[in-house]
Amino acid sequence: MMELIHEYLLEPLSYDFMQRALLISLLIGIVCSVFSCFLILKGWSLMGDAVSHAILPGLAAAYVIGLPLLVGAFAAGLFCALSTGYLKNNSRVREDAVMGIVFSAMFALGLVMMTRIESDVHLLHVLFGNVLGISSSDLWQAGSIAAICSAIMLLKRRDLALYCFDPAHAAVIGVPVKVYHFGLLVLLALTVVSALKAAGIILVIAMLIAPGAIGFMVTRSFDRMLMVAVSASVFSCLGGTILSFHLDAATAPLIVVIQAILFLLALVIGKRTSHSRKGEHGSGTAATAG
């Protein structure tokens, strides 16, 4: 038994790159799962999809100008979220269509820029992440963003949950609703940026949706949903990273596969434990991942 633990869990820890990989996957596992609870409850899954795709041209532009890549990524993600809101209010097209156009156009622009520009940023790493290749400066940057975002969301979780549940009541008791709306968009962009190096912009979408969906299906109150989401996410992030070391498989995809399995498990448990709840909420949200 001890040998098994040693071989499977402790041996990976003796490598520096694995220590960094486990730490970053722990941090982004937490930040993504906390945000995913609000994302699921607000019905913003498509927004997560959009913002993460839209980051690509920001990365390329930042490289050209010589800015830190994360700054460019953050600006592009936020631009996508805000321009979607603006276009929705000032055109006859519905929000989902506007969002679809904005983010796919930005993603396409990013692809064009990436293929034209000679850079040391690998497209495949940007798309699908490279947990095992995290440098200590990556870890420091992304990790601190993830930690700060997690702390803000956990401290303000009651107000954020209220904003998702009943913005009218929030307004009536004097909560600055517009600030919260904008704040959630900023947090979304920051969360995606923090997970960029490790999970990549395609797979982060799954990490932003699955934990919240899992928590939503098996719980009846918000704090429990948060606990289940974070546990499921941390379990799959650490488990996926260690497993990928032994299997010599891509890490982020493995994490997402584990989350999908947990999601199926939650689906079965959720069906058995609550008969009165109708599943209309959770079903439409996972479909956008990809």
């Binding site: 409850l41 209220l162 998702c164 549940f165 009541h169 008791i173 928590g215 109150s221 949903m225």
Partner: peptide, 15 residues
């Protein structure tokens, strides 16, 4: 479907 209990909703009145 929102995961809140009756007492949670009423507590929101006290926020």
């Amino acid at each position: 479907n929102f995961p809140v209990l009756v007492e949670d909703v009423v507590m929101m009145g006290r926020y």
